[in-house]
């Protein structure tokens, strides 16, 4: 009765022994990063069309869909002289409060233009709460070329109904 459970101990230690020769699972973050699944939902980005215009048209459907009420959109009317996005409407202010956000992805689903996408950035720590409110400037991806930034003077691309492209995500022009 001295070592009644010695069998179990040997069984357990054998696992340890075996794993000693396997490569370690620990990632040396931040030097080494774990690969993410393509549909991982991290920090949001506001996408642009190939011509540099913002896909976001300021329709506020993301804010309406948001179960945490984390999104604030202030739309405004734009002109051809200072164009941000296709159509008549653009988001003058677009803010996501990352303290509130639950990363459910409903905003992405509600977006008629595929403007908002939950991307793979998960490094969301802030020194103060105000920084957790991500403004449009920080959400918007850089333009594909320096001269394709917004706002800029350009006629409504794709004619009259380009604000909401027939295929979600937009026809790349």
């Amino acid at each position: 009765m001295a070592f009644p459970d010695i069998g179990a101990l040997i069984k357990g230690m054998s696992v340890t022994l075996r794993e000693m020769f396997n490569p370690p699972v620990t990632y040396q973050y931040p030097e080494v990063r774990r690969p993410l699944y393509p549909r991982f939902r991290g920090r949001h980005e506001l996408k642009r069309h190939a011509n540099g215009l913002e896909k976001c048209i300021g329709c506020s459907l993301c804010a309406a869909a948001c179960p945490a009420d984390a999104i604030y959109v202030e739309p405004a009317e734009q002109t051809d002289a200072a164009r941000y996005s296709p159509g008549e409407r653009y988001a003058r202010r677009y803010e996501i409060n990352h303290i509130r956000c639950i990363f459910c992805g409903f905003c992405e689903e509600a977006c008629p233009t595929g403007a908002i996408v939950l991307e793979h950035d998960y490094e969301l720590s802030y020194y103060n709460r105000r920084d957790a409110i991500i403004t449009k400037e920080r959400l918007l991806v850089p333009p594909p070329a320096p001269d394709l930034s917004t706002p800029r003077a350009m006629p409504d691309p794709g004619g009259l109904y380009s604000a909401i492209p027939p295929v979600k995500g937009g026809v790349e022009q």
Binding site: I57, C59, G87, E88, T113, L160, Y161, A163, I164
Partner: peptide, 11 residues
């Protein structure tokens, strides 16, 4: 009808 409800004020 253009079906631009997301940018329409009546939406």
């Amino acid at each position: 009808h253009p079906l631009d409800c997301p940018i329409c004020d009546k939406g």
